[in-house]
Amino acid sequence: MIKIIVCFILIFLLKDVYAEKRPEPPLVCGDFLAQIGLGRPDVQFFNCKIGSEDGGALEWLEAEYRVSGKDAVHVENWLARTANTSHLKFACCNWETNQKSIRGRGSDWYVVEMHSGETEIDRRKYFSKIPFMYLTVRHYTRTP
């Protein structure tokens, strides 16, 4: 009987040792690029927000950055190298890349994309006339 009790106590005490450890997401919104060592002077952090959809099944923290139009090509190329995003493409009324994931420290993942706001500028050579483009970095804190 004592052996059984000892076994249950050991199982109870060791369950966390063998349990799968999940990466801890950032607990607060902030400058994720700086936090994971990818901050750049031409990418200016300006906001972070909390979002969700599907009744809370998906939840995330999303950092927002501004990129001056004159720096857009440099940041676009860096993003393509770092996250393997597509280059900016004009569709209808704005410029955008596809979304791609980058690995943070440990096993955290972030979804990144770059886009302009609505603009009539449809030629790359005129990027400098676009006041700002935007880079978003999203970290999911809950997924189904």
Rank of each mutant, 00 (worst) to 15 (best):
Y65L: 03
P23I: 14
E76V: 05
S52C: 02
P26T: 08
E59M: 09
K100L: 13
E96F: 06
N77E: 15
K21T: 14
D71F: 09
F127E: 00
C93N: 07
Y110I: 03
E113S: 14
L58E: 05
V73A: 09
A19F: 11
C93P: 01
L58R: 12
G106A: 12
L33P: 08
W109A: 13
F90D: 05
V73W: 07
T85A: 06
V43F: 08
F32M: 07
E76A: 06
M133C: 09
G106H: 02
K21G: 00
G51E: 12
S128I: 03
P41F: 05
P23D: 06
L33Q: 04
A63Y: 00
K21V: 06
K70W: 12
Q44V: 15
A83V: 01
A57C: 02
D31E: 01
P26M: 07
C92D: 10
D16S: 12
F45T: 03
Y134A: 12
L79A: 05
V111S: 12
K100M: 13
N84Q: 11
A34M: 07
C92V: 15
Q99K: 14
T141C: 03
V112M: 10
N84K: 10
S86P: 05
R142N: 13
Q99S: 14
N98P: 06
E24C: 09
H74K: 15
S107Q: 15
T143L: 10
E118R: 09
K89Y: 00
K129H: 03
D71H: 08
M114F: 02
V43Q: 02
A19V: 11
E96L: 11
L33E: 04
H115C: 13
W95A: 01
Y140N: 06
I130Y: 04
A91I: 14
K21Y: 11
K49G: 10
R105P: 02
L61Q: 09
F32R: 01
R138C: 15
